[in-house]
Every structure is written in C-alpha cells, then in structure tokens.
Amino acid sequence: MESNFYYALGHDLRRRIIKIIGDNEFSSFTALKKELKVSTGTIYHHLDALSQLIEQGKDKKYYLTELGQHAYDSLQDNIESIISPDFSKKEFNSPILKSLMFLTPKKIINYEKGYKIYTVIFSISLLILGLIFCYLNDLFPILLFFTNLFQSFHTTNLSLEIFFNVFFIINFLLYYFINEIICRLVYKKSENSIKFFLSFSLTFYPTIIYLAIRYLFNELYLLDYSVISILDNILMIIFQVWALWLLTFNLIVNKHLKVENALIISLIIHYGGFSIILALSI
C-alpha cells in the first residue's frame, strides 16, 4: 500500500492526474486527455499504475479512493517542491545561461539562514548605488528602462527634484509590488515574500553596472562618438536581458514558479514598462 502511494507520487504525469481528479472531484478520460495532452496509451499506462489511488465509477468517470485523497492532500502543499526540488542548484545546459549565472551572486538571491544580513547589506548598497548613478547620469528609471525625459524638472522645482532623485527606490518598490501582486493573483504564490523582497534589488544589479559604464562614457565624452553611442545602446539591451534573467531566477527560487511562468511575468512587465516609457515620450 505504502509503496503504491510513493510510486504514484514519483511521476509528474501521475501527480497531475491525481491533481486534476482531486481539483474537480472526478474526471472523465476525455477531460484527462485534453488536460494532459499526451497519448491515450500513456494515460492508460498511468491510470493502471494508479489503480489503488483512483477508481472508475459506474458513470465511467474517475474518482479518488481514500488513499488517492490522501495523496491529493499531500500534493496540495508540496507539488511545486516535488516538481522542481532545488532549482537554484541546477546546472544549466545553455552556455548563455551558464555565463549569466556565473556573473551573478546566486547565493545572495537564494540565501541560507545566517547569510540574511549579507543579502540585506548588498541590497541596500545596490539601491544606494543605483540612486547615485541615476543622479549622476541624469536619468529617470521606469522599471528596467532609463529615460532623460524629465531633465527639465530638475532645475525648476525643488520638491520634484527630490522626488526624481529618490525615484530609483520608488521604482524598486513599484517593480517589486507588481511582481508580488502577479505572483499572488495569477499563480497563487504568496510564500517567501520577505525573502523575495530582500533579494529583489539584485534584479537591478546589471542595470547599475550599465549606469556606471554609461557614467564613465559620459565623463570621458565618449558618447559623442557614434561607435560608443551604439555600444551604449547595445550594452543597455544586454544588461536589461541579464536583469530579466535575474528576476526570472529570483521568481523561480523564491516563489517556486516554473521557469516558463517566471519568464512570462518578466516578459509582460518588461514590455509593459516599455509601453509606459513610450507613451510618456510621445
């Protein structure tokens, strides 16, 4: 009996079958096939393996047995951790992702007990650096984009000047809350909010490097050269993509989202930010 229980939980497809039946109280074979998108033979194979956890009623629909209900209850709390037990330690096959993670302080995003203080110090340092470099470059941050559309306000209005100068931190909070709200509302993920918040400023780590490089270009009057100007644009794109990957990684390890879902959130927010900045520029 016990071995059947663990055998059933040991395969992604079988877990999904139990979850579908548990979520809907019962399920027809057609509904399972539609939901799982696998071949008829594969479903029969797994239904057979689940013989002690599910039963077929007179109406030909599948129901959970008592043991099946127990398996379903266990999955409710732990399904994501079963599916992706420790993503943070996963090695990526891709050379692009490998090199992006090599340049990233992974341990600070997914910090362990006792290292919280280092994450907090690193996060605060990043926010201060971002604030300083935005001010030095005379740029206004909107999510992961930077614009100089509001330069004219700096000399005319003191309160606006203060607002613009601390906007990097407001932008950080805004970006965090948008992510947190989407995770909670769309994916029902409310766990690790504090951990997610503390390590969230790491998302801006690549953009701060970009701001520092841009400041250097600016100070050396290199931006007047066409090649450097183009390089500046290309650097911005590359550092933005790196930042998006960090955000994705953060969502995966702290919110336990699948890589695809985390990328969808990053993509939607990023292009949403672009739409705002485009509307403002028009």
Partner: peptide, 21 residues
C-alpha cells in the same frame, strides 16, 4: 533550446524597442 530562444529573442526585441523609442 526554447528557453534560450526566448532569451535571445529578448535581446533581438530590445533593439527594436530602442529603435521605436
């Protein structure tokens, strides 16, 4: 390579966004 493809698309799309902006 679909995840890699999305990331490369991010880069490609970035050029277009800058141009439009």
């Amino acid at each position: 390579y679909r995840i890699n493809s999305v990331i490369v698309n991010f880069v490609g799309f970035g050029f277009f966004l800058i141009f439009i902006f």
